[in-house]
Design a protein around this nucleic acid. Structure first.
Lengths: 233, 233
DNA sequence: AAAACATTTAGGTTATCATCGAAATATGAA
DNA sequence: TTCATATTTCGATGATAACCTAAATGTTTT
């Protein structure tokens, strides 16, 4: 007689390396069609299709039909958090080439996690907002101070637009590379989106890495007091 | 070319249901000999031995030899956190009997997670300490205020004794049943230990559940302002 | 030294499941 | 309608790994 949640069922879904590639490809919150995922995982369409249906059955992914394409994405932010958390005890990938080592540095430096910022950048931005008392951790979630609401407005985010019914407003998410928390939830997503709008960041083609632009580098230094090496692309 | 940690390797270790039983049996932080684990998982000694060596190889467990027995336990608190986190997206166990339903309630109400308190009790104790400003969340870890240091001393915990070199002092750990944070780390462990010393809690024989005694129920109400239904055993 | 106990190793069996190609289904374009 | 594209279903194959019994190793007790 068991009383605990069935964790081996979820672990089994993540355990297959092809499915792990699929999940990792969707870790930046994007939706991809089955054929694209088949290409990324280097398996046949029929194989990827079987994997995708298992992942949907297990509520790790959701699917949306657009014409003859079916777009798959992570079911929710919690799934991304679990994958990120697993990374904290998983062995690091073996570095076999200079190119890989450079990509690894980039990913650790700044990347997306679901739809928010992670890596050194994500952690430092979160910490800066806490230090400035823009956000405050309360009961396991972040809340925005009165001062913070004004700060966000001038930054281009209107807190009042948050759709708190559909999604948790703001919460900490453990970062595998930094082993510290970065901000997730609606607010985490809004911050990341604004960074891209302001052209502070550009996306990598191949990985979840993001790059600070010249403009972005200057801006986070001035507005948040964050000194980060501008990563070489 | 991959740059992310090898999460499928860890997931594979958790994916087997026999290994999941082993891990869950050790989730309260105890050390158990191989034979005991074989009995709990209902497999032969040779089978459990093979599983245990895989779990040790993967750094999920550590083993200590005492005479002819070999005692296995979780390698560290992070492993417990990952398992607890997986529980937040795993399907709840199907309840098949009245007895099981009652055990499930008990486990949700109050249990151990590694060596600290979890469930409704763990979350409420943590929240009470935050509300009283005994502990403060800072940079992803809890710190103890000056006021808090006195509070803990009168409670029977000397913060100065913390062995911060060997272990994180105090940090939040996500609770699968409450979906909120409870306190973990050295301090979380010290609090739980003190609860048992003061005879506020007794342990279940079969599950990770713990029960508030009459004394404990009164004490948490008076000292922390926590109103909890005393769970029927 | 011998017997008892705890655990691991070895060898063989079986079940599960990832995989593929081919065929089937579904949708959009011509 | 016919053709092209995207995806799923089906059936067969092969590899992996969990499992057991029996034997071997290691440790304690008598």
């Amino acid at each position: 007689m068991n009383v605990y949640p069935n964790i081996s069922y979820i672990a089994k879904l993540i355990a297959d390396s092809t499915r792990a590639i699929i999940l990792e490809s969707l870790m930046n919150g994007q939706s991809l069609p089955a054929s694209e995922l088949a290409y990324m995982a280097k398996v046949s369409h029929s194989t990827v299709s079987a994997h995708l249906s298992k992942l949907v059955d297990g509520n790790l992914l959701v699917v949306e039909q657009h014409g003859r394409h079916r777009y798959y994405r992570l079911a929710n932010e919690e799934v991304a958090e679990v994958l990120e958390k697993l990374g904290t005890i998983a062995p690091a990938v073996e570095v076999r080439s200079l190119r890989q080592s450079s990509q690894l540095k980039q990913v650790r430096h700044a990347r997306t996690c679901y739809d928010h910022l992670a890596g050194e950048l994500g952690v430092k931005v979160t910490q800066a907002l806490i230090d400035k008392e823009v956000i405050i951790l309360k009961e396991g979630e972040f809340i925005v101070s009165d001062k913070g609401e004004k700060w966000f407005l001038s930054f281009g985010i209107n807190i009042k637009e948050a759709n708190i019914k559909r999604r948790i407003f703001a919460k900490p998410c453990l970062d595998w590379s930094e082993r510290r928390y970065h901000i997730a939830g609606w607010l985490g997503s809004a911050i990341a989106t604004r960074f891209f709008e302001l052209e502070w960041l550009t996306k990598s083609e191949k990985t979840r890495a993001v790059y600070l632009t010249e403009k972005g580098s200057k801006a986070v230094q001035e507005q948040l007091g964050i000194g980060l090496e501008k990563e070489l692309v």
